[in-house]
Structures are given as structure tokens and as C-alpha cells.
Write a protein that binds this DNA or RNA. Sequence first.
RNA 1: GGCUCGGUGGCAGAGUGGUGAUGUAGGGGCCUGCAAAGCCUUGCACAGCGGUUCGAUUCCGCUCCGAGCCUCCA
Length: 460
Amino acid sequence: MVLKIHNTLSGTKETFEPVDNNHVRIYACGPTVYNFAHIGNARMAVVNDLLVNVLRTQFEKVTYVSNITDIDDKIIDAAHELNEPIKNLTTKYTKIYNDDMGYLNVKLPDIQPHATDHISEMIDLIKKLIENNYAYEKDGHVLFHVPSFSKYGVLSKRNRDEQIAGSRVEVAPFKKDPADFILWKPSPDPLPGWGSPWGFGRPGWHLECSAMSEKTLGLPFDIHSGGMDLVFPHHENEIAQTCSLDDNHEPASFAKFWFHNGFVNVEGEKMSKSIGNIKLVHDLKNQYKGEVLRLTLLSAHYRQPLNWTKEIIDQNSKMLDRFYRSLKELQDVEISSDLVSEDIMESLLDDLNTPKVLAKLNTLSNTLSSADTDEKRNIKNNLIAAGKILGVMQEDPNVWLGYNQTSNPEKEEIEGLINQRNEARRNKDFKLADQIRDKLKSKGIEIEDTKNGTIWRKDS
RNA sequence: GGCUCGGUGGCAGAGUGGUGAUGUAGGGGCCUGCAAAGCCUUGCACAGCGGUUCGAUUCCGCUCCGAGCCUCCA
């Protein structure tokens, strides 16, 4: 079976073939750490985590790099506002980011480089670009001269001439061309910076990813990913920088596949500060389990927009409960394989078609009620194995569903009430029995009368 | 204005040149004292108009509508 992924560079789904079959290398543009991560940041992290999981089913060695941007004007502004040292702020939010993503079962990348640890690499890169006449210095700024790069716009499929007509952005006076972008800019006191041949200053945003991806993975590597909005200008500029270093203007000489995930909207609107509808993972953690959030993020194809609403979260929460109920039903069945069926793998390998995978898992678990032992084993194999790749169904079903709460402080009271109810039922005092059940329900306790007696679960 | 991507059943969301997506909500039923959970069953969706075709939701064109990007942005 082959992995096919959509390549933004070609605009089509392509068969994935690594540069080096023995070592797949992937770089994802990570967060700027000046605030809590929102659900859009999380989608990028979850989708890339999934991609890496899928790659690992096909290739022996995969190295996943995702950076932390810890120097940026937004960070400087936030630190200034909070009157806090930059380093404190970035350390704090880096930790929060990793914790929040961990809550969503996102594994840490193999390498998580920080921009501020790579300033000298960036300076070297700039020197080389100036040497090769792709960049120039003006008033303490160093700029990349976009017209010098013949392939500018191939990724975003933009023609510069068409864009400029509609552009209303005022052009900085030190730019030779309106499209030229900053590689280095001066940091007048008290702004943070580093010494450089062009004076005390700091790097432009696009530069760090060129420096860190080359250093950690080598060129060319296999997949460069990020949110859809990074296509232009961030990735376009990265391509210009990196591909100018050796005068090879082909974007594929940097990364062969360009992988971008779609946006998350909230109640049909784009998340924005002015609307005040930014959904932070930090807050969602208080309301929902990580797997519910993760499954919701995977419920639409990664390139489609995802409309974040209470309804879809509830819907996916129910789906996950159902999967866990199937697993509970299958708890005495031994799995016989830790691989998913070819059918399900095929959908995963088809550009990470998670909605189709979920549909197939549903169809499969719907056969449970009439399944024989072999079929049951097959269902469990697939739920467990697919869950591992998707990053869900990692918990004990009884724990997930709230059964067997042996350490619940109200355990004795709950079981006392259940005994009273069963006594009332034996006496055919159904009015009292129902009152007791309502009382339990108000405590969040759901009871189920089974042929083996009454069981209860804490409804979360 | 330019570029890109979309419009599928109440909602969410895949997919396909001719049969069932799937989930959720709703209807009917089984089970249950009643519930819960589960099971069975039901629903005839592919924006509009043309074209290609024996046949189009699927391909092509146009129209309408929506989203994103056009140097802050996951």
C-alpha cells in the first residue's frame, strides 16, 4: 500500500516517496509562544501528530521536528505589556503549549528547536544571501530581494504583478521592491537583540525555519507543514531564502512535500480577538476530555475548514463513548494483531482520510452484536490499532465510561441508594424506586439494570 | 480587484460516472415495572442552468452563494 498526500506545491494528491527510504524527515512550523494555544494551533499539532503516526506505520525511521518561535514582535509586545522578562514569558508558554498538546495525546516532536538558540545560524544564512546577491542591507535592515528569486509565488500560486494592484499596504522606504521582506532588523534599546555584522538587532520571522529545518534535518527533506495561512507569505519566503542559498530555485530542493491544514472556525466565524471567540485549549480542558477534543479535530478531513461548535463536540463525544462501549463489551477478548485492517489502513494512507476511517470503524463495531469470536477479535484489533494511530481510545473503557469507581468518596452512599432502590423494586414500590433513581441521577450517577444486577457509572 | 478552495439529507461529514457512506438528531419497534445501555427498523441529500454520456451528485462550461489569502495570523 502506498501513502498519498496532498502537496500544496502541485495542488494535487501525490504518492509519497521519501528522499531517503531509511529516514523520513518532517518539519512543522510551530507556535509563537506569547499566549495560550487555541484550538486552531491544536489542529495543526494533532494533524501533524497523526501524519507522523501514519508515517511510522510505513517507515522504520521518522524524525519529526517542530519549532518554538521564542523571538518575535508579538512576544516583545506581550512581555512589555505584562512587564515581564521575555524569557519568562516564552518559557512559561512553551511549557503550557506542550502540556496542552499532551492533553490532546500529541506526542512531543523528536526535536523542538528554539529560534533564539539558532541566531548564529541565521546570521550565517543572511551573510550567504548577501554574498550571493539575494539580499541587501539598508539602514541597519537586511532584506531579501524578492525579484531575485525566479520561483517566487510557486507555492501560493500567486503572480506578483496581479497582487500588487490590490495591495494597499504602505511600503517601507528602505525596500527596493515592495515585496522584499525582512531578514534582520535593528533593535534599538531596550528591545532584545544580538550583535551582527549589521548592528545590534533581531531576525525576521521567516528566517528561523529556514535555519532550523536545514540544521536539524538537512536538505532536501520530505515534508514541510503548517497551517494553511502560512502558505503565503511564510512558506513562500522560506522557500526563497533556502533555495537561494545554493542558487537552485526549485522548491523541492528544500522540501518535497508541502502539507497544510485547514482552519478552525468558531460558530461559523473566524476566530479573532476582536470578536472574542478564540477557543483556548487551556479552557476547553476544563470542559472536555482530551480524546473528545482530539476526535473532534479529526472528524473533518484535515484540509477542510472545521466549524467548532458544541454540537460537533457532543456528537464526537458520543461516538467515542460508543467505541468505548464496544471495547468494554470486548474486554474479555484477546487481541490477535496490533495492525489495522488493510481496508482501514487504505483510508489512512489516502491523504489521512479520518472521516472515512471513523465511518469504517463505526460500520465494523455495528457488527458486534452478531459477531462470533473471530469477528469480535477482528473488531477489537481494529479499534485498538486504529485508536493508537488516531490517538484516541487509549484509556481503560471502564474508566472512560465511569464504571468501577472504587475510590469514589460517595461510593457507599451510592451503593446504599441502589440497594434501597432494589429493595423498593422487590416490593413493587416503583414510585420510590424511581425517586431514588432520580436522586442518583442528580448526583451524576447513571444506573443500568443488567441481568447480572444493577451497575452504576459516573456520567462525566 | 487578483489568486485559491468550497457548496451533499434537520445538523456534522466522506465518497462515487449506474447499488448502502458513517455519525448525530427525529419516527416506529424490541428489551425493561419504568429507565439506562443495547438491538432492529425508517428517512429516497447531492446550489441552479446548460453540455458530454445509454446514464451525472460525480466530468466540462456558465450563473448564484460562501470561505481563505493578497506581506500580523495555526
